[in-house]
Each structure stands twice: as C-alpha cells, then as structure tokens.
Nucleic acid binder design. Structure first.
Lengths: 188, 188
DNA sequence: TAAATTGTTCAGTATTAATTGAACAAATTG
DNA sequence: CAATTTGTTCAATTAATACTGAACAATTTA
C-alpha cells in the first residue's frame, strides 16, 4: 500500500498549505473558516458543490453558504455551472495577483468613499469660517483643516491611479513580473 | 459670542472628519476606538498625553494605553518627549502615504512569512513524491502542487519589489504625485 | 530612601462577531 | 401541479474580542 501512502503524504502537505492560506486570509480580514473554504477550493482538482465543501471544512450549510457569498463578492471564488447537475459548483481564483489587486482596490475605494463624503459634508462650513469668521483662531483652525483636506485629495488622486494600474495590469509595465520560464499569470 | 460659535462650528466639522478617519481605519483592521484615538491626535494642534487622549475619547486608561501601543507599532502615531514634562506625548503621523505604505508593506511581509514557512515545510515531501512515487496519481498531485508553489514564489518576488519601491519612495518614479493640477474632485 | 506620578498588564466583564440549524424560498422534476 | 432538491436567511447560541479598573512596575522627585 505504498501508493496510498504517497497520496496521503501529498494530502498532509495540502493540509499544511491550506492552513497557511487560511492564515494569510485572516491577515486580509476574513475569518479562518472562510479562509479554509478558499483553501479547500484552491487544492480541489475539480469544482466542488456546497455539500462537498461543507463536508471538507466541517461547517454548517448556512456558514458555508455565507462564506461562499463573501468569497464570491471579493471574486476570490467563482461559481461554475456543470451541465446535468442542479447544484452550484465553485472553483478558487488561484491567481494571487488578481486576488491581491481585488483586495486592495476594494479597500482603496471604500476609504475614498468614506473620506470624500465627510470632506464634502464639512468643506462648505470650513470655507465659510476660514474666510469670514471674526475670530482669528477660528479662521486659522479652519484654514489648517482645509489644507489637510487638500492633502487627502492629493492622496486619493494617487491611490486612484495606482488602483487603475492594478486593474488594467499597467502596473506590470512599471513593475514587471520576472517568472523563471513562460509567464503563466494570464492577467486579462 | 460669534467667535466661539465659529470655533464650535470647526470643532463639529472635526468630529465628522474624526469619525470618517475612524471608519476608514476599521477597514484596515483596527477597532473603532483605536481609530478614534488616531483621529483625535490627527486634529490635535499639539502633542497630547495619555490623560488628555483618555478624556477626549472617553475610554479607560488601559484601553488608551494598548490602543496607543497598536498605533505606535504600525507607526501611525509617534511618541514625543516634551522637556520638563514627565508624561509621554503623542502625535499622529498625518502623511497618508506613509501610513498606507506601512500598512501595505506589513501585510505583504506577514503573508510572505506564513506562506514561505509552509512551502518550506512541504516542498521536500512533494519533491520526493513527485519524482519517486510508484503511484502516478500521487506523482501528478505532487507535481501540480509544486507548480502552485512556484507560482507563489513568482508572486512573492513581485510583491517584494513593490514593497521595496514603497519603502524607498521609488514608486513615485513610476506613479508620480500630481500635487495640484486642475480641481480633480476627490469624489465618486 | 520613601513618596508621588505615570504607564502597563491582566483577570473579569461587556460587547461584538461568527456559527448553527431550522424554517423558508426558489428551482427542478415527474 | 405536488414532491423533491438545493440554497439562503435569520433568530438563538456560541465563540472571540475589546474594554475596564485595580494591582503592579517603572520612573521621577524630594
């Protein structure tokens, strides 16, 4: 039974790799369980359905369902249809570049949206105080805060550029991938 | 009483901006409380000590202490000494670029470290199985996994390059900051 | 050196987030 | 159309995390 033993050795290796993947995903803000779902799909040699995943990660159907939703939202997992099969099937997006870019672009967009809204909310008031207030102290404060807001705009202009470069793949023009042989990372 | 009213208007604006900053920091994985500490320091016009912060954010001394430790670890806050004063004082790192890069680089380093360790742990086993196993299935599995590991190396080589460019500032050679051209609204 | 001040740690508590499982909805089959 | 299968939602439960406050340690002062 040497054959099965070798397969088992590979499977033990995979468990270690899956744990590592789950851990890194925790860094990026998902729960260990959701990380494990991704890890299992990463090392599956075919699309898995909900029940198969549920069994492998030992979680409830509900948790797997919501976990998959998260992973679909962030595009780390893709839903595929297998003809002649009613169940949904899932595969992992294995391109770490894509996953990494999707993560960062999303964060930057959220950040931008929150700060922009707040800036818009207060800019009018600050501009009024900065130019019309009787109080020098108030004017100074408002002027300083407006300068800070201007700085955030410079920052957001820049991060938007970076995010676009990531989405289009232009970032590889500035920072090329040096793969040892043939570039496998088909970034659209 | 017009003067104080204007100052109050600025302070109300700051509250909105502080909340927004706290919210964005939640995106990046810190608690709202810690985010508020940073926000308060961001809009403080002088270094604050622990008691002053504690009062402004309405938290216990212990929480402010550990919150500040987190912010110091990630270099979003700097400790300064005021001569003739026994208390530690703190200021916010207001440069969003620095904060973003520090965050980014730290994540990449953590990720790298976790995956590299796992890869090292299993590489020997997989190489052995891939070339010596009697079982074709086992060999195939191991070979596939080794290819995946190679891909992660390509990915990590690249992210390391990017992280270095951020730390040195070289990234601005590829993606320059345009300080102020046309009033690009920083809003979606 | 003792007294006073300041900052940190940590056990207990409070708060928040994740998970379960059963009920529900949607889709498919015969 | 009813019966069956599949996926989702959500209230209740469980688990994880953050916060408090008092005890402790470290530092400064006199």
């Amino acid at each position: 039974m040497d054959k099965n033993q070798d397969i088992q050795r590979v499977e033990e290796s995979r468990d270690i790799l899956i744990s590592a993947i789950a851990q890194t995903m925790v860094i990026y803000g998902v729960t260990p369980s959701v990380g494990r779902i991704y890890g299992v799909l990463y090392y599956a040699d075919r699309p898995l359905n909900l029940d198969e995943i549920k069994e492998q990660v030992a979680m409830s159907k509900g948790s797997v369902s919501t976990g998959l939703r998260d992973l679909l939202d962030t595009e780390m997992v893709i839903k595929v249809w297998k003809k002649g099969n009613r169940k949904d099937h899932y595969i992992a997006e294995k391109d770490f570049f894509k996953n990494f870019f999707a993560f960062f672009v999303k964060k930057l967009r959220q950040e931008r949206s929150i700060i922009s809204r707040a800036n818009q909310q207060v800019e009018g008031v600050l501009e009024d105080v900065a130019s019309n207030s009787q109080s020098e102290e108030a004017r100074k404060m408002a002027q300083g805060d407006l300068e800070d807001i201007d700085q955030t705009k410079v920052y957001f202009d820049w991060t938007l550029k970076l995010a676009n470069a990531m989405e289009t793949g232009d970032i590889f023009k500035s920072f090329p991938i040096n793969s040892k042989e043939g570039d496998e990372t088909g970034n659209d």
